[in-house]
Every structure is written in C-alpha cells, then in structure tokens.
Write a protein that binds this DNA or RNA. Structure first.
Length: 821
RNA sequence: GGGCCCGUAGUCUAGUUGGUUAUGACGUCGCCUUUACGAGGCGAAGAUCCCCGGUUCGAAUCCGGGCGGGCCCACCA
C-alpha cells in the first residue's frame, strides 16, 4: 500500500487505547525530520554517483582548486565555513550547465603529526622508517574522520579525485618540479642566516614567524673607547660574544668623534670598529647599537653591507657555541643572566630599563611560540625575489573576489626580502631529491627514480669521486601544497585532462594564507607552465566565536562543528555559512542557526500546503492568471535574476536572504493567504481560478527549490522528489528568468493588495478580532488612477479579508482609503 | 611606522554611480489558538547611520581631518 494513495485511514493510538480517524495522509510528514532525511539523501547521492565528474562530457568544465585541509583529524568551523562556500559554488555551477570538477585533497605533512606520533605512539623519529610508517597510518585515520565530516555537511566533491600530499604520486610530482627548478637555476643551496626555531630545531619560512609582544629589558652597557665610554643599548646582552661592530647615526653630534675608532668589548677583551649608518635611530636607547651576528635582520643587512665577519654564537638547540668562551654550552636565557651579572660586577652596566617589544617568534602553523634565532646554516632555497614583478602581474590577471584582497598579495610580494627557504629539518615530509658531496658538488636525482628518498643513502660524486651524502631535510609543506593546480589537472600525466582542467576556474581560500598558499602557487605554476594557475580567487574571512572575538581556547569561545551539527542539521549550518560576507571575518551564531532551522520548518510547511493543493492539479496551463498570480510570478522572476547575478560574483548571503524573504513574506505571509479562498472554494470563485492558483504554486515551488538547492540541498531534494517525482533538483537546470512574466503593473497592483490586506489585518488586530472573522461591510475610496487596479483585485480583497460586502467608490483621495462598517 | 578593511536600533546586518519616511533578522512588548506551520501569524516600540568640517538644492553614501576596532606587514637594536 503506497502511503500517498491513502486518503483516510483508521489509526490505533496505543496510549489512549482508541481508534482515531486521520482524514488526509500527506506524502510529506507533519514534521521535518532533518537528521534522518539528510542522511538518506547523502547516501542516495553517493550511491547514484550524481556528482561525479565526467572528463569526456561536452559541457564546459568548471574546475575547483580546493584547499586541502591539514590532516589534524578534525575539521574546525573555519573549514566548514570555507568548504560550504566551495560546495555552494560547485552546486550552482553544475546547475548552470558546467561539468564541475570538484576534487578534494588533504595536506598531510606537518609538525603536529610528528609530535602526536612521538607522544601518543611513543615512536622516536630517529627510527625513521618506522616513524614515517606510523605517521602515514595516523594520517590515514585522520583523513577518514575528516572525510566523514565533509559528508556530514552535504559536500558534493567527487572523491574519486582525492589526493594526499603523502602519496607517492604526489611526492613524485613535487620532486619533479624541484628538479625543474634546479635545472632552471632557481633552486640552490647556501649558507645563510635562517629563521631558526630552537625548540622545534628547524628552519622556518618568513611566513611561519610572527611577533609576540613581551615585557623585556633594555640594557645600557658601557664600551671603552680609549679613555672614553660609549654606551650601547641592547635587549640581548648575551649576544655580545658575537659583536662585530658598533653603529651610530652619521649626523649624531654626540658620537661623531667616535666614528672610525675602535670600541673594546668588556668581558671578551676584543675590539670592534665604530661605524655609522642612516638606519640607526638616534632616538632609541642611547643612539648607539651593537651589531651581533645575528641578532636580528638588521644585523644581516649591515654584516653584508660592510662585509663584516660572522661569529656563529648560537647552535641549533639554542645554546652558546665555543665562540662564547666561558659561557659556552649555556642556554640563551642562562647566558643572558650570567653575562649581565658579570657586567654588573665589573661596573659596565649603566642601567636596565623595562621595555615592551616585539619578539620574533614561531607563531604560524604551530603552537610553539618560541622566540626564534637567526642561524647561518646550509639550506635549500628557491629564488623568489627575481620574480616578484611577474608574480604581481600574474595575480593582477586573475579576478579577485573581493577585489581588494589582491592588494594583500601585492603588499606581501613587495615586502619579500629573502628567497624562499624550502628545507625543513623534519622527518615526515617530501624528501629533497639531491645528494651533496663534501667537494660541494650537488647530484640531483634521476627523474625515472622518483619519488626518491635520499636519506641514509650515498652516491658517487661525478666530480671528485667521493661519497655524496643524501639530503636529509624535507620540504616545507607549502612546497607540497603550492602545486595543487598541477596535481588535480594531471600535469605531465594526461595532456587532454590537463587541457580541460588547467588553469583552475576557481581557487577558494582564506585571506590569512594569501601570503603563502596563493603566493607560492601563483609563482611555481607560472614558472612551470608559463600560465596563470587560476581564473578567479574567492577569499573568505575567519570564523570568530559567538562573541565576535577570534576563536581561541584561552577565550573559551571555540565551537566545534559537531555541536551545531548535532543540535541542528547540515542544511542549517550551510545557511549559517552562506550568510557570511566575502572577505570579512564572520562570527559563529546560534541565533542564525535557530533562524535557519525555522526557515526549513517554514519551507517544509509551505511545501505541505502546496502539495495538498496540487493533488488534483492536471498540470495544464490555465487560460488566464489572476492579478495576484501575475504579481507573485513577476516578483519571482526578479528574484531569479538577482540571485543569478549575485551568485555569478560568488555572493551568497544576499541571494539566500532574498530567497528566504520571498518564501517567508511574499509567498507564505501574503500569496498563500490570498489564494486560499480560490483553492478551497472553487464553487464560488471558479475552477479556472483554482487552476491558475495551482499552476502558480507549482511554478513557484519548483523555482524556489531550484534556487535553494545549492544552499539547502537535502530538504530541496526531499520535497522535490516527493511532490514532482522528477529526478534530483540538486542537478536540475538552474531557472532562467522569464521576462514575459515580469510586469511592473502587476507588481504595483500586488503591492496595493498587500497594503490593503495589511490595513484590514490591523483593523482586526486593533479590535482583537480573529483574522478569520468576517467583516460585514467595507467601503474603499479610491483615486481615479488606481480604480482599474482595485477592480482587478476586488475579489481577492473579499476572499482574503472575509468581507461580506465590499464597495469601491471613486473619490478624490490620495491613492485609497478604507472605511469600515 | 606603513598598507588593507570596517564603524548603521540592545546585538548582528542590508543599503555607498548622492534622491521621499534607512532593509531585514534576533531579542523586547502587545494582540490573534486562522482548515500548511504556535518551530506560527498580526502589530508596536527601538537608529544623533562613530565625531568634526567640506562639496551639493539634497550626504549613511562623495572628499578632507579626527576617534575607535580588526587584520596584514615593518630593522627600533
């Protein structure tokens, strides 16, 4: 027995032990059970593979270079926000007739995984092979959990095209691109002061460091210059063993006489030259600064400019080397204390001031936050500086949404002063495919052997015949992730696939990684393919906590996606995410979830109402539509036009709000109320009038389900399949506005009807009358211009307002006036 | 110090090629149990559109200067 065929049935109520009669059994349940229904649709979409990418399709391809989340094992609200947008674009473009290529990968290599494996599984990184194996195992599990979370928001990616940066195929392409950069002379090895994290024992990219404001001390230390004293000010007295010069400003009258002389360092019995440079700020401290290799980036600049010697004072663990003399082996903090004590004892400290200053720290992509040091070390570099202009020009050829985000990339590019250090002293990462001989010769891997792991292996040096040692460093994670457009397009692997899917139609990402992911991707793909790697960039902001402040554990305002998903549903969270604006930070909001949830209920009930009244609709177009029908259909066409225009520009919040407004207010509050009399009483208002209302309802529901389906795909397919029984609305054609249905005249008439009904409702409300109560007599005075319009909606006013006797009278009034009784 | 963005009811928000009475939501208050929906409906109150100045017949909107917030960058040792 099919449920929708039953019109009346006896039900046994077990609690009350009686039978009751339910006259009408609807196809759509009284309540919308989001959890159950969403699950059902996700399983069906998956089973029937309706979102698969067909590379042989004749449709134009729309490809998405989606951000591979780091495999932490869980998606956070930021991911949900970002990926709902991506899914919206994919669903919209599919409906617009594109063959959407929607792959989704995972970024696997990273310090957090190494730390977890060490801590939780107790495997030491020294046992490299086993360690990597465990990292991979852990990551695979993490990916399963994250894929499951993607599923839970109705993510329509084609998982047949997933990738993992730890896969052999991925590493192979990364290494291949490194060999290409090497052959082009853009990849090199050099001893260079690098940003070094002593706690993590690795070199960092500039993009991985930030500043932490700390309460520090400014030490005023006397140096002897002949019989005179010259007082320097420094925050780092422990760096004194590495001091190679003292600088003053050339115009500083206090110190002009010292320039060119030598200053004697206390405790170390060594003399350094006194030089002058414009970069010295005479206002800071004493206006005298000492240069230590390397205390900060200014030191590097001066050391190079004046060709000063280099003293390597700090080792990889953050301890002092033998250059520190009797302070050797001490940690930076200990040395600072001891050297200060000794200076005080010898009377060289003039004073110590408190100072709030910015300490360069390991802040990005890590919770380490340790102060970083500058160490001269052998590192692998990729030349970026020589291509800044090309990168900017390429980025300018792309469409940035919002446009101003391009400026972030330009600013960052212009501020680059180092090349990109791509080596990391870690274990779980893509190996750098080179061997280095003590004679200085570099032996690249052979392309045929990729992916290769040179660690622990040797090669014969072709130059000196000696043993070249395999590079033991691995790549910075951005080296992996900055070739995603090439991985997804099967570059060098499948030419016809590449032609179809490169450049990517869209790169969606957050603004915080413009300086890394967008920057490096644009650069490397330009060098490798000679072309810009994407057409459009869609930039989202960060998700803030419900209090509007940045989500952080210390503020206690972190919301994990599980909670709203459990309390509400995917279609609810998707609406929350859709309401965020391009490029702006966006707070998580329980209120928005609540509102979104209510909208789903409203939509459900509207659909139930329409379903009920479409039962006996034969699908035939009526001879004539009523004025209200024309009014709502005209508004609907405009809604379609506006939504299409906005979605083409990746704006989601405005279309969704407009659709919701239309559904809730124009349709439910007004139109449905205004056609009930025609639907319920065809014996009074005519069968043809009923059919016109049915036709209109049918068209409206079909259209709004299409408009909503990118936003709330589950409920849309549920309603669509039950009422229209015509495939999946989520892959239906996007509606086109029918210009013939746009009528300014009908819109004006409809507006008047809404106003009149509003007044009548207010009248009843003021008199505490039920809205359904009848009014005996109403007279409407109407201006001559509006008379025709009023005549056309007279019946609707009577039917909707339950007016027994309505009189229209032309009069010299402004528009119209209602008189009761 | 530089760059970018932002400032609209208690809260969030629409609206910026200048144009009647500034959009909507949440919350608050009053009313209505109406044959899709009380997870409703109708209605009300609530805004010096951050401040000052300028352009203009007219400014939330354009310009200048402040103040405040956010993000990014930067060599103050």
């Amino acid at each position: 027995m099919r449920r929708n065929e039953i019109l009346s049935f006896l039900f046994y109520h077990p609690d009350n032990n009686y039978y009751f009669c339910r006259r009408v059994v609807q196809i759509l349940d009284k309540r919308y059970n989001a959890k159950e229904i969403e699950k059902k649709w996700r399983e069906r979409w998956k089973r029937e593979n309706i979102y698969r990418f067909n590379p042989d399709s004749r449709k134009p391809v729309y490809s998405l270079d989606t951000p591979p989340p780091f495999t932490s094992g869980t998606l956070h609200m930021g991911h949900i926000y970002n990926h709902v947008w991506i899914d919206l674009v994919a669903r919209y473009k599919r409906m617009r007739g594109f063959e959407v290529y929607f792959p989704q990968g995972f970024d696997c290599h990273g310090l957090p995984t190494e730390l977890r494996v060490e801590k939780e599984l107790g495997v030491k990184r020294e046992d490299r092979e086993k360690f990597i194996e465990k990292c991979e195992e852990w990551t695979k599990k993490a990916i399963e959990r994250m894929k499951n979370q993607f599923d839970q928001i109705g993510y329509s990616a084609d998982w047949n095209y997933s990738y993992r940066t730890m896969d052999d195929g991925y590493k192979k392409l990364v290494q291949k691109t490194l060999l290409i950069f090497y052959r082009k002379g853009l990849l090199y090895r050099e001893k260079h002061p690098v940003l070094w994290c002593p706690r993590c024992e690795t070199a960092l990219a500039k993009a991985e460091v930030g500043y932490i404001e700390k309460e520090g001390k400014l030490y005023y230390i006397d140096l002897d210059v002949g019989n005179h004293k010259l007082t320097i000010a420094t925050t780092r007295p422990e760096m004194m063993p590495a001091c190679v010069a003292v600088f003053v400003h050339p115009d500083d009258n206090r110190y002009k006489r010292f320039i060119g002389k030598k200053a004697r360092l206390p405790l170390f019995d060594r003399e350094v030259p006194i030089l002058s440079d414009e970069a010295v700020d005479p206002e800071f401290g004493t206006g005298v600064v000492y240069l230590c290799t390397f205390g900060d980036e200014q030191d590097i600049a001066w050391q190079k400019k004046y060709k000063l010697p280099v003293i390597e004072l700090i080792d990889k663990r953050g301890n002092l080397t033998e250059s520190a003399g009797r302070y050797k082996g001490m940690s930076v903090e200990e040395a600072r204390r001891r050297i200060t004590e000794d200076l005080i004892e010898k009377g060289y400290i003039r004073k110590i001031e408190k100072l709030r200053h910015q300490v360069t720290s390991h802040t990005e992509r890590s919770s380490c936050n340790a102060p970083i040091e500058l160490l001269p070390l052998e590192q692998w570099f990729i030349n970026v500086k020589d291509f800044i202009q090309d990168i900017i020009e390429t980025a300018e050829k792309m469409n940035w949404y919002p446009e101003y985000m391009l400026q972030r990339l330009i600013d960052w590019s212009n501020a680059m002063d180092w090349n990109w250090i791509i080596s990391r002293q870690r274990v779980f990462g893509t190996p750098i495919p080179f061997w280095v001989c003590s004679c200085g010769e570099i032996i690249p891997a052979d392309e045929k052997e990729l992916p290769v792991d040179p660690r622990g292996t040797t090669r014969k040096c072709p130059r000196c015949g000696g043993k070249a040692v395999g590079e033991k460093d691995v790549c910075d994670c951005w080296v992996d992730s900055s070739i995603t457009p090439l991985i997804i397009s099967k570059w060098l692997e499948d030419d016809s696939f590449f032609e179809k899917t490169y450049p990517s139609s869209l790169r969606p990402q957050g603004y915080e990684i413009i300086r890394t992911w967008a920057f490096y991707t644009i650069y490397r793909n330009l060098i490798l393919t000679g072309k810009p790697c994407f057409k459009d960039l869609l930039i989202n902001g960060m998700v803030a906590g419900p209090d509007g402040r940045k989500m952080s554990k210390s503020l206690g305002n972190v919301i994990e996606p599980e909670e709203p998903l459990r309390r509400y549903s995917a279609d609810t969270i998707r609406q929350w995410a859709s309401i965020g604006t391009l490029g702006d930070d966006y707070p998580f909001s329980w209120e928005e979830c609540e509102h979104s949830q209510r909208f789903l209920t409203k939509l459900w009930n509207i659909s139930r109402f329409i379903e009920l009244h479409l039962r006996d609709f034969d699908g035939k177009k009526p001879r004539e539509l009523a004025e209200v029908d024309k009014w709502i259909l005209s508004k609907l066409q405009r809604l379609v036009q506006r939504c299409t225009r906005q979605l083409d520009c990746y704006i989601f919040n405005i279309p969704l709000e407009q659709i919701r407004g239309f559904v809730w207010h124009d349709l439910a509050d007004n139109y449905l109320e205004m056609v009930k009399h025609r639907l319920y009483k065809p014996e009074i208002y005519g069968e043809e009038s009923k059919r016109a209302a049915q036709y209109t309802l049918d068209l409206i529901l079909r259209t709004i389900l299409k408009l909503l389906s990118p936003f709330t795909p589950h409920i849309c397919d549920e309603i669509w399949s039950n009422i229209f029984k015509d495939g999946y609305v989520t892959v239906a054609d996007w509606p086109e506005a029918d210009k013939k249905l746009i009528s300014k005249d009908s819109e004006e008439t409809g507006k008047i009807l809404v106003e009149i009904m509003g007044e009548i409702r207010r009248y009843k409300s003021d008199r505490k009358m039920p809205l359904g109560s009848e009014i005996k007599h109403v007279k409407i005075l109407v201006s001559p211009e509006l008379r025709g319009k009023l005549e056309r909606i007279k019946e609707d006013i009577i039917g909707t307002g339950k007016i027994k006797n309505l009189e229209l009278s032309v009069s010299n009034v402004d528009r119209f006036k209602i008189i009761y009784g």
